[in-house]
Amino acid sequence: MLKLESCTVTNSSFTLRADLQINRGARVAILGPSGSGKSTLLEAIAGFRDVSSGRILWKKSDWTDLAPGQRSVAMLFQDGNLFPHLTAAQNVGLGLRPTTRLSKAEQDTVDTALTRVGLPDMGARKPSELSGGQQSRVALARALVQQRDILLLDEPFAALGPALKVEMLDLVAELVMETKTTLLMVSHDPEDARRISKQAVLVADGTAHAPTGTETLFANPPAALRDYLG
């Protein structure tokens, strides 16, 4: 279980409070107006931002002071998820070990992951030789080999077209099901949230609220969400 115990995260302009729990294996959408602090919440969980008070716990371990690489978290950002000067396979390989020279066994793992996301034989290509959707798949393949407990998505598919985005979300849903990964996903689009997550966390007015059922939330939206949805 991921637990944020009365956390406050201070970003230069505002403070976000969070006191909530997310069950293992859950798929949770994070909804809220822009600028409300959805990304800040993910960054705090990933370790890119200090919490000024409170604790972050995963299962029995305290993550509050752990460095980002030491938390069992894989994160995909809005952009810049791949290193442009490395091949797709090298990019995926970095999920195993911070090196560009992998052992044979590790290379096999990378190839399997690339095949799983639908990119067999694309390992030698550089990101610039891949389409936007293919780049997202490489980043997902890396998250796959990382074998982390939690996957955080900070709108990595925002730049893709609607059909492609749906395709990627379905792939994500499949992968997290297979690996029993806990998924937290920032979303602007209620449809995305409905599509793959049963639960949703509303971030509004400086607070990340405890997760509720996505359908319940949309059926009876609080004022902040109502304004946002229009």
């Binding site: 990933a46 370790g47 890119f48 460095a67 980002p68 690489g69 030491q70 978290v73 894989a74 994160m75 950002f77 810049g80 998820n81 290193f83 000067h85 490395l86 970095l94 999920g95 911070p98 090196t99 560009t100 890396r142 990382q146």
Partner: peptide, 22 residues
């Protein structure tokens, strides 16, 4: 690239040789 590198636990010498210098 620092967030991506940190999330992959690449720091110091590894960050320098794999990301920064190239």
């Amino acid at each position: 690239y620092s967030r991506l590198s940190l999330s992959l636990d690449m720091t110091g010498w590894q960050f320098t040789t794999i990301v920064l210098l190239p």
